[in-house]
Design a protein around this nucleic acid. Structure first.
Lengths: 118, 118
DNA sequence: TTAATGTCTCAAGACACGTTGAGGTGAAAG
DNA sequence: CTTTCACCTCAACGTGTCTTGAGACATTAA
């Protein structure tokens, strides 16, 4: 992820409704949710919801596919992990003060295998 | 870090000049840099720079202290790591697709000790 | 076809954001 | 004390963002 993509992603996440949508879709898993279900969870009108979903999709954070008369939205995990990696990149240039607490927070979660394939 | 703080931090980072300032200050280390040196690196007028530095300080991402006739700004590492932890929190609820690549990216860097004190 | 459902598009308005330029404040030097 | 330097504050302007409401499009059922 380059700076332009990171700025798009950060801008997309820097809005209450959109941040909640992404968090909702991440927990919803790969199948995602229908737009209507998201709108109900957000308490947003269809127009407002569509605006934010379009914004998130343009930023590459979510993707959509039609399913019958619904449209299902799901999180793009690569985009989110890419953004996190982008934010962590700097600290590795001799200043691990950012990385270490982040990894500690990670380890405190229930992630199965926190070590890479290498 | 709660949602409100995360939104402030994301909004502060979602702007080219501010994102570059933060990245510059993270690599600059705990001593930080004088406002003038930051402005020179950014190619920004003093007014514009001050606006963005004030914005970043209000978001808790940087802090300032006077040093002679200069004012030195430095990154607040806790805020950045807190934001990253906030973004990674969701994935741990059964969907490690976000965490794992992020940790892999971390390990690919030269961070000395990627395991917490525990 | 007609009707109902789910979602998107568009225009308009209110509001927030980023930049600029002029001017002000605090600290050091002569 | 006056000047210079480094930086901040303020008002104003153009631009972008978010919300709303009306309407259109696509899909399915009767």
């Amino acid at each position: 992820m380059d700076e332009t993509q990171a700025l798009d992603a950060l801008g997309a996440l820097a809005q209450e409704t959109r941040l909640r949508i992404v968090r909702l879709l991440v927990t919803a898993g790969p199948d995602g949710m229908a737009a209507g279900a998201i709108g109900e969870a957000m308490g947003a009108t269809s127009s407002r919801l569509s605006f934010h979903l379009t914004h998130l999709e343009a930023a590459g954070l979510v993707q959509s596919r039609r399913d019958g008369r619904s449209i299902r939205y799901s999180a793009v995990y690569d985009a989110l992990s890419g953004l996190i990696a982008f934010l962590m990149r700097d600290c590795c240039q001799g200043h691990p003060e950012v990385c270490t607490p982040a990894v500690a927070a990670l380890s405190a979660c229930a992630c199965p295998s926190p070590e890479p394939a290498a």
